Simulated assay, not measured.
Amino acid sequence: MSGMNESDQVIAQKAIGLLELTSLNADDTAERIISLCERALTPVGNVAAVCVLPRFAGLARRLLDDLRARNVKVVAVVNFPNGGACVDTVESEAQAAMLTGADEIDLVYPFHAQLAGNKQLGGEMVAACRAKCGRRGMLTVTLETGILRDPQIIHDACRTAIRAGAAFLKTSTGKQIVSATPQAARILIEAIAELGPQVGFKAAGNVRTLAEARTYIEMTQARFGPFWLEAGRVRLGATSLLDELLAELGVGS
């Protein structure tokens, strides 16, 4: 096994089921997305989701269906990665992704506007994007906490996102120097506890080791209880973590 104790084994197995594998590069190709989807089906169980650019949502969904992995969700990012201020653009991106096969939308919150003091835009954008998700689609709101930085600003954005219809709050895109941190995660988790116990939590960016995964899993469990540790409540955006988890469990990818 690699010398893990039983607790490590349990955490590694749990983490695989919470993983959201991502490929969000401007030069992504169909071949890269196919490989990502194939990696989502591991010898010890499927991951929770794959997260891709909108133009690949249909391909990912068709491939996963062909692989009989309907339970693996396809998440399409919008307003990515710069968190722009145009609601119309976000609506168009979200609608197109849902129509082509996305199960969920991941909206990058307009963090520049939030920092500039425009607290209304975020709510308007989240609500508009939520409407395009329809009845079946879930909406993640990525807050880019490494840029917002100030705890009160992050908390305000969390409250706005929850009230406007977010199904998940996510720490970061992974495209900034500072991504997920336990401090930022704690703010998101407390906002969820305060306003939206039905809202889930995602840690993404800089989650690369079993120890880091354990931190976020244990934080959510400590606040909400063990029943929370399922893919509809907690996700780890951590593609590079998969190989380590599989190796720790004694299987190959």
Score class of each variant (00 low, 15 high):
51 C>V: 13
17 G>L: 02
98 M>F: 05
237 G>R: 02
213 A>W: 05
92 S>K: 14
250 G>T: 09
145 T>R: 03
101 G>A: 09
130 R>Y: 06
57 A>N: 03
196 G>R: 05
173 T>C: 07
93 E>I: 01
55 R>D: 13
245 L>D: 07
134 G>K: 04
9 Q>G: 14
64 L>I: 14
170 K>C: 11
63 L>E: 12
224 F>R: 11
162 I>D: 06
1 M>G: 14
234 V>Q: 03
187 I>T: 13
142 T>A: 01
71 N>I: 04
18 L>E: 09
78 V>N: 06
122 G>E: 02
109 Y>G: 03
226 P>C: 08
48 A>Q: 03
201 F>M: 14
73 K>E: 03
71 N>V: 09
165 G>D: 04
114 Q>S: 12
84 G>K: 06
5 N>S: 12
120 Q>E: 15
163 R>H: 15
48 A>K: 08
23 S>K: 12
176 Q>R: 10
79 N>S: 08
178 V>W: 06
44 V>D: 04
210 L>I: 02
249 L>M: 15
15 A>V: 12
111 F>T: 00
40 A>D: 08
84 G>H: 10
63 L>I: 08
21 L>Y: 07
138 M>K: 14
246 L>C: 15
192 I>S: 01
208 R>D: 13
99 L>V: 08
12 A>Q: 09
121 L>W: 05
158 C>T: 00
35 S>K: 12
113 A>D: 03
222 A>N: 08
167 A>M: 05
50 V>E: 02
253 S>C: 10
243 D>F: 03
204 A>K: 02
19 L>Y: 01
167 A>Q: 08
